[in-house]
Nucleic acid binder design. Structure first.
Lengths: 161, 161
DNA sequence: TAGTCCGTAAAGTTTGAACTGAACAAACTT
DNA sequence: AAGTTTGTTCAGTTCAAACTTTACGGACTA
């Protein structure tokens, strides 16, 4: 039967995409479920409810709820409203590259800034101590800070493309 | 006593550096031990043996052996030879930024290439099926492949800076 | 050749991330 | 007001990654 065949092949396609494409998304520091869920939403023609997702991935509602919330945090997914539907509806954001890069770079920048300030804290504390005369060691600290500055520059540039 | 004070403060410094700096290195997809080990080697004036590392981090020799080997794989550490010393000696590579970026970008590029070819495989297989007429779905696949191409370009550029 | 030292492999243990099911609270329906 | 429906919280479980201990094999030494 034509319709069944069509559905089978579409399902296989979705299955393969979830399986393969999600691997790339995991590299953006998403875990397996978050990645799979994004691909699912990405491929879906319509926005999905938690129950839809639950069935699509065969996992618990709690798992879906957690995953979709971190995807929301990263701005990779949005909640949409549809008249007459009580359940929350979610869909993948457009602009795959833009959204993922932005989420990724932001997290890098936040982390780098935090870490740099930690190193500068060590620097201060270290400056008051007798061991400040250890040039060798101090140089390493300076290089580490410079390392963070360079990373900051590189990731800032990634935003502006 | 002057010397003791000096040593204490140096030890505190190393401790803080291992604790803080390693967090940044973990973002390059190194695990905790690998990151801590790199910082340890980085701060050390002399190359270290497995036993040195073991004492420095308070972990087993096997753990050190594993960690140092993945650091070698990523070209972040090198083995050096010293006359009269039987144990293997390791030291951190110079050029912090250069080495880490290279290791990181390489792993991204390898993964992206692999994933892209997987998607192209799906594309082929999909082209032979009746469902090829589903334009909506095919567009998604094309966009996903394009996504990989863009990533490839971006990370290639990172190498050339 | 026997004995020691060192790196690596193998087997078993620990620990944390991810997942599930049950319970709860807010919003809606009747 | 009572009863559903839906998202979220919490407590307990499962499983894979990281770690340790023990054992092994090759290289040096006496």
């Amino acid at each position: 039967m034509q319709t069944t065949e069509w559905n089978d092949s579409l399902e296989t396609f979705h299955y393969n995409m979830i399986s393969e494409f999600s691997k790339t998304l995991e590299m953006f520091s998403l875990n397996t479920t978050e990645s799979q869920l994004f691909v699912t939403l990405y491929l879906s023609e319509d926005p999905m409810t938690l129950d839809d997702m639950k069935h699509a991935l065969g996992k618990s509602k709690t798992a879906m709820n957690n995953a979709v919330r971190t995807l929301l945090d990263y701005n990779l997914v949005e909640r949409v409203w549809k008249k007459g539907v009580r359940k929350d509806l979610y869909q993948a954001e457009k602009d795959l590259y833009d959204k993922f890069m932005r989420a990724y770079v932001n997290r890098w920048l936040e982390a780098i800034e935090r870490q740099k300030s930690n190193l500068q804290q060590i620097e201060k504390q270290f400056a008051n101590e007798p061991s400040k005369h250890n040039h060798q060691t101090n140089e390493k600290l300076q290089e580490a800070i410079k390392f963070h500055n360079t990373l900051e520059d590189v990731f800032n540039d990634l935003h502006k493309e």
